[in-house]
Design a protein around this nucleic acid. Sequence first.
DNA 1: AAATACCCTACCTCCGTGGTAGGATATAAC
DNA 2: GTTATATCCTACCACGGAGGTAGGGTATTT
Lengths: 153, 153
Amino acid sequence: MIFSSKAEYGVRLMVELGRQSPEHPTSLKAIADAEGLPLAYLEQVVARLRKAGLVMSARGAHGGYWLARPAEKIAMDEVVQALEGAIAPMECFVHDHTERVLCSHEPDAGRGCATKLLWTRVQGGIIRSLQTTTLADLVEFSRRGERVPAATV
Amino acid sequence: MIFSSKAEYGVRLMVELGRQSPEHPTSLKAIADAEGLPLAYLEQVVARLRKAGLVMSARGAHGGYWLARPAEKIAMDEVVQALEGAIAPMECFVHDHTERVLCSHEPDAGRGCATKLLWTRVQGGIIRSLQTTTLADLVEFSRRGERVPAATV
DNA sequence: AAATACCCTACCTCCGTGGTAGGATATAAC
DNA sequence: GTTATATCCTACCACGGAGGTAGGGTATTT
């Protein structure tokens, strides 16, 4: 699998925040109830988004979270990166020579590393698809079909 | 991480086979020695490639493996798929409702699933980048720079 | 018959994932 | 100023898959 549940839950959380008006903060509990997700785990997820500067928070009663920027200005590669860490197709793309998987991605034998070429292309494909999608796209998509009888499935 | 060592080792194995002339089979031991990979584990990896019809094999002395098709006719999405299984960005894309990660990818509340839109785009980006790369591309790349003094790094 | 090499299955260890538990701190309402 | 709300922080834990190892069986050549 490519992404873990942190990405799934975190993106859903961001979409929920994007659906709210940013006047008053939204509590995690409201989101956990709406999406059916464990609150304590969501706290860990949202902490990553906060540290990445994607959401802001207010403590205390009537506190909660809201988007740090308008949804149109948030590209999804930022979000996924904050949640999952570096987006790398292979172990040795992220750690420097401390990995388990045997890596010949250095041209030690004086020849080009074929797998590195492949993984680089894959990485480009992923990042491009994430960069060209904004949170606003997802929010709008989640609004489509809402309250609309199933005319076109 | 996106792909496991099976993909890394398996792709390297395919490149090695692509570098050989297909007249005589190449033994796994030769590949394991050349790449510094554990032989017993490579056997499991190559079994997936064989079952997918990407390589053929001959048993006994002077046996070994060779490409079932010319490298130009082998797209890398087939290879990676054989090694890793279905290429899915999220758990619920592959198993049907038997997964752990809570999934709202069914429009249960009558609204579009925003994360599904995102993961579908990512999946498309990955598969496209794999489809447009052939094994021949990787073999050629691995030949470039070979035996060539480092003029352009 | 001996060496080579594919083929198959069972087993094992380590570590990340996906949480839970329990508290500390800040704010608002009364 | 106490109570309720809600963010914050850290430690802990069980499970499963990754990444192998081990050991044998079978086919083919020399």
